[in-house]
């Protein structure tokens, strides 16, 4: 232990400078250590590798009739698949983009040449409820698409938000048609 009682006035000043430096560098290194240690704990709570592993889902659409909708689960989320009627497609196409809260053309929401098929994540972009509209008996809202009962968001036949508190259109998951009758989600 240093003898603190016998430092001269001159030596004392030098001592202070060195100590200040040591103290500051100790604190800086210590703080960096704490920050580096915190990361594994934070990251531990993130989705783990098995959850992230993109489980992909193949779905046979050959039996679906025009106007029919089906809900499948992908990554624990509902996926809405709808085979739209010609009238529904027309309606979605003719809406001017300026009428939309989250402007997006219908063509950008379907695969080229597959206008009939709308594949979306069935989760309301407001606060996460599942909009009604998949079943024949469901209320489809004022725009003939989906209606979220939680706070009254209306989606059109392209799944775009038209009215209500939701900020964005229903999200499109990554998907592809592997052949004419099969869609692969994920």
């Amino acid at each position: 232990m240093a003898d603190t009682s016998t430092t001269t006035a001159e030596g004392h000043e030098h001592e202070e400078d060195r100590r200040d430096f040591l103290l500051t560098s100790t604190i800086v290194v210590g703080a960096a250590g704490v920050a580096l240690t915190a990361w594994p704990f934070i990251d531990f709570m993130n989705p783990s590798a098995d959850v992230l592993a993109l489980a992909s889902l193949e779905f046979d659409i050959s039996t679906m009739e025009p106007g029919q909708a089906i809900t499948v689960t992908w990554r624990n989320k509902p996926i809405f698949i709808r085979r739209r009627t010609a009238a529904e497609i027309d309606e979605a196409k003719k809406v001017p983009l300026s009428d939309l809260k989250d402007p997006q053309a219908d063509a950008d929401r379907v695969k080229e040449g597959k206008d009939e098929w709308l594949v979306m994540i069935g989760i309301c972009t407001h606060l996460g409820c599942i909009p009604a509209g998949q079943k024949v008996t469901d209320s489809k809202g004022e725009f003939g698409g989906w209606f979220c009962p939680c706070h009254g968001s209306h989606y059109d036949t392209s799944g775009r938000i038209r009215k209500g508190p939701a900020p964005r259109n229903l999200e499109i998951p990554p998907y592809a048609f592997t052949n004419d009758t099969t869609v692969r989600i994920g």
């Binding site: 594994p40 704990f41 990251d43 531990f44 709570m45 993130n46 783990s48 590798a49 098995d50 959850v51």
Partner: peptide, 24 residues
């Protein structure tokens, strides 16, 4: 947070912590 105290899952949940969970 990732451990599962059930005889059917306990061992597997620890192995999952070791392999799949970030920094598990």
């Amino acid at each position: 947070m990732h451990y599962n105290p059930n005889v059917d899952y306990a061992f597997d949940s620890v192995e999952r912590i070791m392999r799949d969970v970030n920094y598990g």
